[in-house]
Design a protein around this nucleic acid. Structure first.
Length: 441
RNA sequence: GUGGGCGUAGCUCAGUUGGUUAGAGCAUUAGACUGUGGCUCUAAGGGUCGCGGGUUCGAAUCCCGUCGCUCACCCCA
């Protein structure tokens, strides 16, 4: 039966807006990135943590900030009982911190390193590299104030990108001060910008009261000129923040990670302090960040824990994969083979209905011996089965028809050379197991 | 939430100032080779031209609406 006979109008369901299916042919890229991440995280002493996909809504309101866009209009929030509201996580830092506090991990060991990989949810209008269900891979180093730790996290991120061979990324860093110096800078900046209020774009005028720092990031030419003449946060950092920033920059230089200091790099969330950074990729569009992170010394106390400094980042997996595709000329299929290898190693071709049972039995013997194998479930002609075997890229085909059955043997065809050999059925498994190239998955 | 662009076969796309029965390549299936893959040749299947309305003798083509996708703005790990 031809699958195409179904009328298109019968397919009424589509993946919800802003979500994406990762089809098998593209899965290899995800797997490559995920495995590179796990290897690097674990190499550096980070342990995986898995938190729920949804949390008490109040956790995000408290950590992200009530007046932010995320909380105001982008969260997937719903009631799960009369008096409790839950929210699909829009980010994972707060959940990780919640777990850290809930199990009082800081009491057994103050300093701990975690990593996570998983989906996040935000109800935004989708665009390049931005989805409503998106995936992040990130780490949180909790409970230490050492500036070298900030550098460690940056180095982990860059090595993950190096592992997947992603060329062309840029590390941008800045310091946004702490709860001592940041408010001072904020009021000075606001005061100076108010002098130019009328020259600012409409949006920036409203930013004056909501989020002054973002004006520094505006793309409007007029605003750019104005903000160019504004003081830099770096001139207002307190002694401690200055030393911290200096150490971070020197250490980056020392371990050979190129970076640029971007005084206009600001983070929207209130919990960031001191070091903030972003890794961008030039091949992406307007939304060019593939990793963002920084230090957050106030978050834990904000959600009811002790005053402990931490630093973390999140890698946007969709954006990273987009960037990787942009710089990789190869087709997805090739990458697929590279990562997952041809599957399976052996294909069994049955001839005639009466041999299928024996073939199926042989298939299971192979699999029990850890040899990857498959066979035809569509009852197709030997020729068609061979074609399938070829497309799969198997190294060996086992042919079992009435002739072989009568003699009690099987024919093995080595695809690369077209050479065929006959073996007793009982010897076939041993023959495969003795091959130089392991056939195990 | 705001704005731009685009919707033709499974995929990538042609389709003339509006004119008979809407095409190609790739992919799929099959034959040439009825027990054997790749290469080649041949053939077949696959379309409500996103959907609805309008203009017209006549619409894939023009107009309006709508839905979807996409890019950008806003915002942002």
């Amino acid at each position: 039966m031809n699958v195409n006979t179904a009328k298109k109008t019968e397919y009424v369901f589509k993946a919800p807006r802003g979500t994406e299916d990762v089809l098998p042919e593209k899965w290899a890229l995800w797997r490559k990135l995920e495995e590179a991440g796990r290897q690097e995280f674990e190499l550096c002493g980070y342990y995986e943590i898995r938190t729920p996909i949804f949390e008490d809504t109040r956790l995000f309101i408290r950590s992200i900030g009530e007046a932010t866009d995320i909380v105001e209009k982008e969260m997937y929030t719903f009631a799960d009982s009369e008096d409790s509201s839950i929210t699909l996580r829009p980010e994972s830092t707060a959940p990780v911190m919640r777990a850290y506090l809930e199990y009082e991990l800081h009491k057994t060991k103050k300093f701990q390193k975690f990593y996570y990989i998983g989906p996040q949810f935000r109800k935004e209008r989708p665009q390049a590299g931005r989805l409503r269900q998106f995936h992040q891979m990130g780490l949180e180093a909790v409970g230490a104030n050492d500036p070298l730790l900030d550098v460690e996290t940056i180095s982990v991120a860059t090595r993950i990108f190096d592992r997947i061979d992603l060329k062309g990324y840029t590390v941008k860093i800045n310091s946004i001060g702490c709860e001592k110096c940041r408010p001072v800078f904020r009021s000075i900046l606001k005061e100076k910008l108010c002098e130019h209020e009328k020259a600012l774009c409409e949006l920036c005028q409203s930013r004056l009261n909501r989020n002054v720092f973002r004006i520094l990031d505006c793309k409007n030419e007029k605003c750019k000129t104005i903000s160019h003449h504004m003081p830099s946060i770096n001139d207002y950092l307190c002694g401690e923040c200055q030393t911290h920033a200096k150490t971070v920059r020197e250490a980056l230089l020392e371990i050979g990670i190129p970076y640029i200091v971007d005084a206009h790099l600001v983070r929207g969330l209130d919990y960031y302090t001191k070091t903030v950074y972003e890794i961008t990729h030039s091949s992406l569009g307007a939304r060019d960040a593939i990793c963002a992170g920084g230090r957050y010394d106030n978050l834990i106390s904000d959600i009811g824990g002790p005053s402990i400094g931490s630093v973390g980042f999140a890698i946007g997996m969709e954006a990273t994969i987009l960037a990787l595709e942009n710089v990789t000329a190869k087709k997805n299929k090739l990458i697929n083979q590279e990562v997952c290898g041809p599957s399976p190693a052996v294909y069994i071709v049955s001839i005639g209905e009466e041999t299928r049972k024996q073939c199926f039995s042989l298939l299971n013997l192979l699999r029990r011996s850890n040899i990857s194998a498959d066979f035809d479930y569509e009852g197709r002609s030997p020729k068609a089965q061979m074609r399938t075997a070829n497309k799969l890229g198997v190294k060996y085909v086992i042919v079992l028809g009435p002739d072989e059955l009568a003699r009690g043997d099987v024919k093995i065809k080595i695809m690369e050379t077209s050479e065929e050999i006959s073996l007793k059925q009982s010897e076939a498994i041993t023959w495969f197991l003795n091959k130089e190239t392991p056939l195990k998955k």
